[in-house]
Design a binder for these strands. Structure first.
Lengths: 336, 336
DNA sequence: TTTATGAACTAAATCGATTTAGTAAAGGAG
DNA sequence: CTCCTTTACTAAATCGATTTAGTTCATAAA
């Protein structure tokens, strides 16, 4: 039951390996119909399957890319990944997926191993902590696109949400509805988590622009399990803001848990808006007003840039994709 | 800027390629400390990275598996996939992910291409329509595990939910709460979609067991966009069942949309229970009683079986993993 | 008749590792 | 001093394709 190789096909068809190879690569120019038919028959008869590994070795390309994400369980990731896979399918590429859980050591290992596996490029949601490695990849001209975060000092393609705009959309919407006391809920400050820092900074800017005071107490940046404690505190002191802006789906869940625990009514007791258009936004009561990230476009753009890099057509660039306000009922002022 | 190969390292360290290879594979038995050091230095100095493709060609193993799913956007898939990836990481394997959208043609292409890429095994959520191909894989002793669905006539490992049990849990819970008029909501009948058919059949059995009549009108198996029409119809005739069992997350969403549209109250107007513990189940109002699939265990089991097959230790087997009732508030009878 | 041209192939090198079979040198036994 | 073992390596074959540089044969041009 040995594996069938090209040599076997060649022997059966009574031609050389070279000719079989030409046939498989559709270089038919100088090939008689007769020969083509014999090869086709031999392939069929032997049930021959080319070994792509051997071909990759010679051609120095594997038609495979590595996608390194924090966690596919996260909705943003899943959607971006799906878009990337669709693009790859169209180009005959395959996708190897790796989860880092935001651990730089895991990230380093994955990059090393996939690089050794000769992947043709990487799309990475970077932890941001392996600067030396990112640099080496760029030096080696290994196609590389960052998604969601940039890394300071690394001159690579990056596809990000326009966080400034996303926050503007959220805050302006709340302000337009007549809310003046607006709080923000986020995970803890972490300098390398670009979108988080950008959103928090943009929030303060947006408040200023609306001529609203920035209340320190209403900027809650805590580990998820501490968020509800902080909110509890505010509630008991009767200092809850009129509206809460959750900077992502995770923190949104915390706010919803808090709201449910105290049987508060949205938007009467607190209005709510968040980044990430969670799947249940429209069936929730009230339906949730959100800022949707253009996740599929992000994935598509990342893949496009990667392919462009493979063709050597580009110099590094940063892309800020536009978020979209999806107006529902969780941030409607009574009477509006 | 040529790529550094083992030959370069060998030359610099003044040893043969063979010795470098031994070193890399940690076959240190007959190697002097001196030589080891020289090789280590040469590797460091040249920044040598072994080419895993070349190694794979010789060793006939790629340490890569293919995971073919319907759609990673689906929660079940994402979670199973995550568990598979974790297991693979522990074993030094990588995962290539493919989405078929339940299209047999796409499935066939992916299997063909990944097979040609010499993946060491497959975990597949099968469309069920490529029986000839599945058979060939098994003949070729290509490790293969099915997840979520089995395929009739194919003797392969399969990891499935214990659908009978899942439905029993749901129906018995409703019955225990005092509900007597129970409806089911599902996507359309499709013989090859094993879990769907099993759940619908089990539902009828469970009703019988509870000595409840099986009302044809209350078994709704329709394309998702037609489900709400059917429910509307029942509502207008005042024939809505007391409780609805949604067989998966997709249909659950339809039911929730319907409930919201008519401003019905759960569980007073209709009680609700579903398979798939959706992420918002606990923050929804009322919180949703669900039957959780053991998604991570399913992924883990599938990967375990695949590795066992690679070691040639197994004969095909079917695994039915246990669902779990998560009791919340959407199926509580008033007064209970 | 000789030479040139083009069609239809093929032999052998190559990709970058692993592995088998073997060699050279040192040390120990008899 | 010879022979055998063991240590520490190496040469060359191999994996299964692709690709380059030919070769052979038939036909056409000079």
């Amino acid at each position: 039951m040995r594996k069938v190789t090209m040599a076997d096909v060649a022997k059966l068809a009574n031609v050389s390996k070279s000719t079989v190879s030409q046939y498989l690569n559709k270089r038919y120019e100088y090939m008689s119909e007769e020969t083509k038919k014999r090869i086709a028959e031999a392939i069929e008869q032997l049930q021959y399957r080319p070994n792509v590994i051997a071909r990759s070795l010679k051609q120095k390309s594997t038609a495979t890319i590595g996608v390194i994400v924090f966690n596919i369980l996260h909705m943003l990731t899943t959607q971006v990944l799906r878009a990337i896979e669709d693009m790859c399918q169209q180009h005959g590429f395959h996708v190897i997926v790796c989860n880092t859980d935001d651990d730089p050591e895991k990230e380093r290992q994955y990059i090393d191993m996939l690089w050794a596996k000769q992947v043709d490029g990487f799309i990475i949601f970077p932890t941001g902590k392996n600067v030396d490695l990112y640099k080496k990849m760029i030096e080696a001209r290994l196609p590389l696109v960052f998604v969601d975060r940039t890394v300071e000092g690394i001159d690579a393609d990056a596809v990000l949400l326009d966080n400034e705009r996303a926050v503007q959309l959220a805050v302006r919407h709340l302000v337009d509805q007549g809310y003046k006391h607006i709080g923000l809920v986020a995970p803890p400050f972490a300098p390398h988590v670009v979108p988080r820092m950008e959103r928090i900074a943009a929030f303060q800017r947006a408040l200023c622009e609306a001529r609203l005071p920035v209340e320190k107490e209403w900027i809650i940046a805590e580990r998820v399990n501490h968020i509800s404690e902080r909110l509890d505190g505010l509630l008991h002191q009767n200092k809850l803001p009129e509206a809460i802006f959750a900077i992502n789906d995770l923190t949104l869940m915390e706010v919803l848990t808090f709201v449910k625990k105290h049987q508060l009514s949205i938007p009467n007791d607190v209005a709510l808006i968040s980044i990430d258009d969670v799947p249940f936004a429209s069936v929730y009561t009230p339906s949730l007003t959100t800022i949707a990230q253009p996740t599929f476009e992000m994935g598509k753009k990342a893949a496009e840039r990667l392919f462009m890099q493979m063709n050597g057509e580009t110099s590094p660039q940063m892309f800020r994709l536009a978020p979209k306000l999806i107006e529902r009922d969780s941030a409607k002022k009574r009477g509006f």
